[in-house]
Structure formats: C-alpha cells, structure tokens
Write a protein that binds this DNA or RNA. Structure first.
Length: 407
RNA sequence: CGGGGCGUGGCGCAGCCUGGUAGCGCGCGGCCUUUGGGUGGCCGAGGUCCCCGGUUCGAAUCCGGGCGCCCCGACCA
C-alpha cells in the first residue's frame, strides 16, 4: 500500500488495491476469516496458505512495529535466523523425532536433508553456544520477526492455523536460574503490553505440558473467543472452561538446550556453567484474527485499534462529482498533522457503497462530506456518537475526541 | 490419519438423480436513471463445467481412477 506516512499525506480510496467482497466465500466458518476475506485483507492460495493483500499486510506490519517497540524498550536486539536449515542440527538436538511430520523437510541438490524451520530454539541455542563466551556478556536477548513453516495436520480457521505464519520469537540467555527468571518476567510483561496496546484481553495460563519446545514452565497467552481451540479455566468462581485463541507462548527452557548443544561460559569463579535459556513466541496473523474476533463479539463490528489501524479517519466524499474533494484533502492533511491517518473515499460510488465499505476498512472515525457542506457529520464507530461540525473545526475536534478517548 | 461434505465465468449458487453441447444473483464494461445506506432499467464482455480414462451417436450429468478445498476429531503460535 502506498504509505500515507511516507507521503506525509492522505490516501485516496480509489487508488488503493482493496478488493472487497459482498458475499462470504464458501466454506468460511469464522467471523475473522469472513471479515479478512471480505475486507480484502487476505486471499487463500492453498490449504493453510494465504496471500496478505496490501491492507492486511499493512496491519500486520503495524503490529510488528508495536512488538518491536516493546522489545526495544526492554533492550532486546533484533536478528534473523535462516528459515532453511540442515536437518542435522535437529537430530543433534534430538528434536527431529518430536517435531517429526510437522516439519517440512526435503533433500537439497546434494542430497543433504534440509528443512523449513518450524521454530528457532535450536538455531538460537547454537548461536549462544558459539558466540556467547563470557559471563559478563549476559544477559543476551535476541529476537526476530520471521516466517515459520509447519506442515500442519489440518490447517483451519482461515489465518488461525496455517502452514506458513509470521511469528515474533525471542530467546534469552542468562548465567543462572535467578537471572533467567528475570528475563522471563521481563518479556512475559512485554507480551502483556503488546496485547494491551491492541486492546485485546488476554489471559496468561500456566501449562505443565510444554510440547515439542521443551522446558519446565510455560505460559500460554489466551484470548477469550468462541473460535478458540484451547480451553482454559476463567477467573475464579466459574466452573465452566472458556475457549480461547492461543496468541503467544512463553517458555522457561532452562539449560536443556545449552547442555545438549554446548552453550556454556565460565562463571566468575571460573567454573563452566551452562547457559539458561527462555524462549517466547507470538503469532502475528493470529493476533490480528483475534482482534477481529474480539471486535465482533464485543460490538459486532471491527475497529482497528489506533496503533495498528491503517487509517483512523475515513472521509466520505458524498458528491459524485467530487465537488468538495479539495476541502476533504485539506481536512485530511490537518488530521495527519494531528497524528490521525486519513483515507478519503473519493470513488464514484453511491452513499450505500461508501458506508458499507467503511465498515470493512475498520476505521474508527467517519467524516461525511455531503449536502450540509461546509457542515460535516462526524461519526465515532467506537461509541456510536455522531454530530455535525464545521469543516474548519473538524480536524481539531477529531483530535480532541481522540485524545479524550483513545482506542 | 479416521469421519463427513464440496469442486460449474472473479464471487455465491442452480442444473447432475431422470445424459441432448450451460443458467441465475452479485461483481465487471457501456448508456440512461438515481444521488446520505450496495437505486432502477437497457445493452455487453466473460466458462477447458477440477484432471485423466471409460460407457454412449452424444457426458457438467453415468462408471473408474486421480488431484484440490472445507468442516469435525487426535496435535500446535
């Protein structure tokens, strides 16, 4: 998508590639899947394989930025592990069997067994083993935002379970259990903050079963949703389990990987000490789907939270001739100065079409430039409030309302 | 992998049982109309009916095989 940030200007709907759908495609079950398809965010290419179209990709990009900011605040450094890896490291770590069929693997041209990485604990552990040499380098916290490949038994729910997905994953290395727990707590909190910033209620649930990743203690971050695959006990008092979407998973790995793969440093007293590791993973597409599911369950429509919304204001130019486009553009520029991103629906379609597609954009504010011009109608889709305001005061009023009640 | 279902213009579907060379709605292009909630009308473009093989004078339709997709279950961000 043409970035309004980069242009320091407003976007014009007529020039955006957002192919919307009137009808729900066949076989769709979930609200998030339906919405993503109809709003032109994604298209399916194959089983568990989705193209992210510009609008969907933009939202993912903004979510990734939010995550990166939380990493930066806590001093984690970004790096990049290869997605294509030799199978040998998986065998060395004794993770080949446990991952088994969930891993895409194939012989390369030389006949070496090669795979698409389903996760990166091993690459991280090997990096630590080779390049963390002194105890005073610790803690080391590195993360990446990268595509994971898993040959899922059964992809489902649109973008909820796919064979290729984007994950934020962080790996921490510490000298002992105490500092390892400090790392755990710190980045556990980073996920709490990420979900808070995208207005998603999430419950961290401790699990004993740490699955194929291994480790002693882990937490799943579950977002309550009917579409959820996981069940968990809700807050005290209720006996029925609640369904939730697992958006992130954090692990205290301890020394198992470093002992197996040789990650150790000499402690201050000169003794070889294995590195203590934690790992953290957060699903990007899944979190976006959860925002939609939550929006639909909460208020029956989707409003992208400020931090990940491509646009905050949709200016609906109602005159089919575009008589007030100049004024709309000027208003858009004023809003942008105030930190609100703007799209102008300048398409030559009827009012109904603009209103319906405004829903699909998930934009919070609608500014309707119509008959009453230069009076505009402002609508807050979050609160349902609407009122008229003169063009000259529209931008400042939007800014004021946003500051008063950010979302 | 076990159990269900589906594959027909871009999308949603009908036709298949009772073989006779394809239809509807949406969308798309043009014109008129309308002009703050997908307006109404006229004209038009667009299809290897998933693939291969078989039966038949003739197959979207019947038979066999294959591929693809969705849903439920066991596993996973």
């Amino acid at each position: 998508m043409t970035s309004p940030d980069a242009l320091a200007g407003v976007a014009f709907r007529s020039r955006l590639f957002i192919p919307t759908l009137k009808e729900t495609p066949a076989g769709v079950q979930l609200p998030s899947h339906d919405f993503m398809l109809r709003s032109g965010m994604v298209r399916q290419l194959g089983s568990g394989a989705y193209t992210k179209l510009p609008y969907g990709f933009e939202i993912a990009r903004r979510l990734e930025r939010v995550v990166s900011e939380e990493m930066w605040r806590r001093g984690a450094e970004q790096l990049h592990f290869p997605a294509v890896q030799p199978v040998s490291i998986w065998k060395e770590a004794e993770r080949y069997e446990s991952y088994g069929d969930d891993m895409f693997s194939f012989p390369d041209r030389h006949g070496r067994e090669t795979c698409f990485a389903p996760t990166h604990e091993i690459a991280a552990a090997l990096l630590g083993a080779g390049d963390i040499r002194r105890y005073d380098q610790l803690p080391v916290r590195v993360y990446q935002i990268q595509i994971k490949y898993r040959d899922e038994v059964r992809p489902r729910g649109g973008v909820l379970r796919t064979r290729e997905f984007t994950m934020h994953d962080l790996y921490s290395f510490d000298i002992d259990e105490t500092t390892c727990l400090e790392s755990y707590r710190l980045f556990f909190e980073s996920y709490v903050d990420v979900f808070r910033r995208v207005r998603l209620p999430v419950v961290p649930v401790a699990t004993s079963d740490t699955g194929a990743i291994g480790g002693s203690v882990s937490h799943e971050f579950l977002s309550p949703a009917a579409a959820g695959e996981a069940e968990f006990p809700p807050d005290s008092g209720v006996s029925e389990d609640v369904r939730g979407l697992e958006l992130a998973h954090t692990f205290q790995l301890g020394t198992q990987y470093s002992e197996k793969l040789g990650g150790a440093v000499n402690s201050p007293d000169g003794k070889p000490t294995p590195l203590w590791m934690c790992s953290f993973g957060l699903g990007i597409e899944r979190t976006i789907a959860a925002v939609i599911e939550h929006g639909v369950e909460e208020r029956e429509h989707v409003i992208w939270p400020f931090e990940i919304a491509p646009y905050h204001v949709n200016i609906l130019e109602m005159d089919s001739e575009g008589a007030n486009l100049g004024a709309s553009a000027a208003l858009g520029a004023q809003c942008m100065e105030g930190g609100l991103r703007v799209v102008i629906d300048d398409r030559p379609v009827r009012a109904g079409g603009k209103f319906v597609e405004s829903e699909l954009l998930g934009v919070r504010w609608e500014a309707i430039v119509g008959k009453k011009f230069p009076q505009l109608e402002i609508r807050d889709r979050l609160t349902g409030e609407n009122f008229d305001v003169h063009l000259d005061f529209a931008a400042s009023e939007l800014k004021r309302l946003h500051d008063k009640h950010p979302f």
